[in-house]
Amino acid sequence: MSFQAIAGQAQAKRILQNGLRSGRLSHAYIFSGPSGSGRREMAKELAKALYCSELVDDSCGHCLNCRKVDHNNHPDVVWIEPDGASIKIDQIRELQKEFAYRATASQTKIYVLNEADRMTVQAANSLLKFLEEPLTDIIAVLITENGHALLPTIQSRAQWISFVPASPLEMSSILIEEGLSPILVSPAVHLAAGVHAARELVSAEWFAEARNTVLQLAKESLTKLPHAMITLQQKVFKSKLNEHIDILMDLWMLWLKDMVRLSSGHKENIVYIDQADWMSPLAFSREVGFWITGMERAVDVRKRIRFNANPQLTLEKWMIDLQGG
């Protein structure tokens, strides 16, 4: 893999490759953006490019150093993950000791803190001191969904690189070319921020069933409500889909957006294009406002469930409200 193998993120690639070419990489970066947008992959590619023996501003992928980074056994690259619910001060202290005493062939060392916003206050303060007074030539990469959750003093000492969701069209093209099912790729690329995350969704055993169940529930809730209640109980709450309520709600929201488009006379770019034959007449049977109201209620339902409302009762009530408009 190289930087170019990561879909999108042109600005992030440009910043990092310019730094590699000029030999003026920052001593610390904040990779901020949604999960699945390529932040981890970019951090690994930065490490590979830094040590690659063949290229200056990218990784060749086949030299010894590239292979070591790929297999997570390069002596100068350290990944730190949350220990339980947080990154603790002992982890930062251990990092400092490890880099202070490690003798290696290369001069520059790099460490990556995944989910850096989950550092305890003590760990963040210890890291701040490490950023201010590094013992050797060190590059830090802090990966987070929300860089603003980091201490302002850490933010001010690092170069911010924003990651944005990749284009659904671009992701779709890549995944379909790989041979993945277009009808599963279509919703997945609207739910994921990057190709890797979308690929994982499509490949998940439960995802196809989740898509089919949402379509069945959407149709039945508007035409055969008693059947919808049975489907909800049997196919969701008595199955493994019970563990993926968030994704089910996201898939349902995509369906409602399709209904808004269809009721407005726009059939192009709908997610569930293979279902248009029955969705179109149903969409035209209601005003556009009906579907928009459904979307607003879906947002409220998702919020209630995330704040620990009973999922089954909340969804049942929503389906009753949806039928009544």
Rank of each mutant, 00 (worst) to 15 (best):
N212D: 09
A85N: 07
I80G: 03
V299Y: 09
R199M: 04
M319K: 03
I15W: 07
E133A: 02
N125T: 05
T231P: 10
A283S: 10
L175T: 09
R306W: 07
R306M: 09
A208T: 13
F284N: 13
Q312A: 13
P134Y: 01
D57A: 13
D70I: 02
K224R: 06
I154G: 14
L241S: 07
I320H: 03
S239C: 13
T231N: 10
N73P: 12
L262F: 13
A309G: 05
V299R: 02
N146R: 04
H227V: 15
L201C: 00
A47I: 15
I305A: 08
T104E: 03
S37P: 12
K13E: 05
M259L: 06
M229P: 09
L217D: 04
E243T: 12
S186F: 04
A28W: 04
A188F: 00
P226W: 07
E205P: 06
S285T: 00
T120W: 13
V271S: 05
N65S: 04
S263E: 10
S126M: 09
Q233L: 11
I138M: 13
M319A: 01
K317Y: 08
Q323S: 02
V195H: 15
P182A: 07
L315S: 05
L25M: 10
R306G: 02
L142H: 03
D274F: 09
G61F: 08
L222F: 04
L113A: 02
V214M: 11
S59G: 14
R306I: 01
I87A: 01
M119Q: 06
F163W: 06
I15H: 03
G324P: 00
T314V: 01
A188Q: 02
F163Q: 05
V195T: 15
L151E: 11
L322V: 10
G294N: 12
I110V: 05
A309N: 03
